[in-house]
Design a protein around this nucleic acid. Structure first.
Lengths: 356, 356
DNA sequence: CTGAAAGCGCTTACAG
DNA sequence: CTGAAAGCGCTTACAG
């Protein structure tokens, strides 16, 4: 190791200094304004010779505009904050990934903040992002927090993915992007009914997000509607932070009494995975005798869980939608809710080629 | 929708304006410098009464320091860039997640950039991050690019997770964080040998990353070393961008001749997942007759792939290590490589409680 | 076509 | 204890 006082230490202790507009201007013998105009490709910026000279200097010194200086001047940062509930969840990772790509294409840089569904972290990040003067917020979290309420009432430009805005004012454009969760629950019920199930288990998270509650409720509602007696519906709401753990616990509850026989609806892929693990360990039957359907249908599931039938939410398209919604906000218009369709992805039926 | 010229439009078209240091100073009747000192908790910043008055104004106006102004002044942004090869890969998502948490604890904000393993995107991001004056770079990509070479030679502060620095100078501290990949391959070989396998398949990606090549090579090397004849080793390098597709293709090649009988080493979890999907569809036997071991052992695998035995890389600890390495760099010292140990995670043996 | 100057929000010596 | 002033890197009217 270099000693603390060695010259080497000094040299390496900060990032290599890069040239500024002023440096370029000085060595090219023009004004800062001129260089700025050239860099930004403004209309009648400079004579051909001046431009050539300046460009040469820029090239030679490897100049790149400092975004911080620009951001301070313009009052906008080209930064968008994305707050995710839990990046470890593949669904969240997918949303983050596609949003990042769409924002990049639109010329923005995404900052990803993992709130771990903790209100304190959520507020910490919200404030840190405001301090960075981000131009918009994408929320994929379901937690209430004072900071979020404050931001909503202050009119910050936010889009809500998957989970609706918990502080949305009545009759306001919610800027919500997602599926009709209640309807998805109903469709899951129909799927099992059409396969002649007579007993039903609905697995969801206790005190879950509004979205996941809506799925479970919609499902139970539909079952009753189609004449299933209450006694034939097991509405299991298992505790746990991770949906994996929820699914495991729910499956345990399900298998607890006598061997289960009937259809199973999991409010999310992750819950289905937890169920699956329990099934592997303790022999809960997940074959055609007990058809299982989940809601999410993430791409990874098509690989890792060929046994899984699910209502596939088109997360791969969320990035584009999110950017469109942000652009609406940036135009000063309220962003309407955006309800996307889902589709049935049958077990094992998804073609490999589409996944590569 | 509000008409384009409605007053509403104007009102919403930019973020709500927030108070500046100057505003606070003016309404509190003190100088900007005084407010700054109070906000930053500097030693003898102000008299008790002044401070009280200023704090009151800050509270009333909801003032938060603008990080951009501060960054410009101090020449540091408290931002760290993380470049990931592919966020859709759960291993990458895990690394991103833990790094984000560790950086936050250290007072930094992480910007996540998904390069999709494309050199052009990698360079685009590298330059965008430099423009943001980030204080460090975390690379979890394996792509060579002109920009990366430029950054390395310029001495930017970077750490390399999982994939070594492709432009590291001889005998230089590489700032690499990861496992001994060749040794992991060797250990995987030993695992199968100890289970009395006599035939072996080694599944990896054609033209893969140095890390994954090292795993496959180490494995083959060890097999030969322990006397396995070349004809009993099938070294399958399948093409494909995603490791899932690679695993699928490799399994197809493996099953192509006669029914496979022997041990299987997958260079990564994802390759094992692809193999698994092929096995489910086409009946490749993955039970004890054909023991399979992969390298990675991501937490998600413990849930979704209870059938999988793997050498578990402690990705959950990567965040802490990455921050330590960055802090070494920030002190002006070179960051040594950091080789972490891995451990065997046997199929189905991982306790559920540890995963919640 | 080109430049001098103001100002974005902040920190930090330097005076008093 | 407190303030006036310079300056971080940039853009943008405003002159010429």
């Amino acid at each position: 190791m270099a000693s603390p006082s060695s010259p080497r230490r000094r040299a390496a202790s900060r990032a290599p200094k890069s040239a500024s507009l002023a440096t370029i201007a000085a060595t090219a013998g023009v004004s800062i304004a001129t260089v700025s105009r050239i860099v930004n490709g403004l209309p009648r910026h400079a004579s051909a010779e001046t431009e050539a000279r300046v460009r040469q200097v820029i090239e030679a010194l490897g100049y790149r505009p400092n975004q911080i200086g620009r951001a301070l001047q313009q009052g906008k940062s080209r930064l968008v904050a994305m707050l995710t509930a839990e990046l470890a969840n593949p669904v969240m990772a997918t949303i983050a990934s596609v949003t990042e790509a769409a924002l990049r294409d639109a010329g923005y840089v995404m900052i990803l903040c993992d709130t771990h569904d903790r209100p304190d972290l959520q507020d910490e990040y919200l404030h840190a992002m405001r301090a960075l003067v981000v131009e918009g917020y994408v929320l994929a979290t379901n937690v209430r927090s004072p900071g979020l309420e404050e931001f909503v009432t202050r009119g910050e430009r936010m889009v809500f993915a998957c989970r609706p805005n918990p502080y949305a004012a009545e009759g306001t454009a919610g800027a919500f992007l997602g599926i009709d969760n209640a309807q998805a629950g109903r469709d899951a019920a129909d799927y099992l009914l059409d396969r002649d199930c007579t007993r039903f288990a609905v697995l969801s998270q206790a005190n879950g997000s509004p979205a996941s509650i809506a799925r479970a409720l919609g499902c139970c509602e539909r079952l009753r509607e189609r004449g299933v007696p209450k006694g034939r519906i097991r509405d299991i709401r298992a505790p746990g932070h991770s949906h994996l753990a929820v699914g495991y616990a729910a499956a345990r509850a399900l298998a607890g009494r006598r061997p289960w026989r009937g259809g199973i609806v999991c409010a999310s892929d992750q819950i289905a995975f937890g169920t699956y693990r329990f099934a592997c360990e303790h022999g809960l039957d997940l074959t055609t005798a007990n058809p299982l359907i989940s809601i999410d249908g993430a791409d990874l599931s098509a690989w890792l869980a060929p046994w899984l039938t699910s209502l596939h939410v088109p997360y791969e398209e969320f990035g584009t939608h999110i950017v469109e919604m942000l652009q609406t906000l940036w135009k000063g218009q309220p962003a309407a809710d955006h309800i996307v369709p889902y589709s049935l992805r049958a077990a094992g039926a998804f073609p490999v080629d589409d996944l590569c």
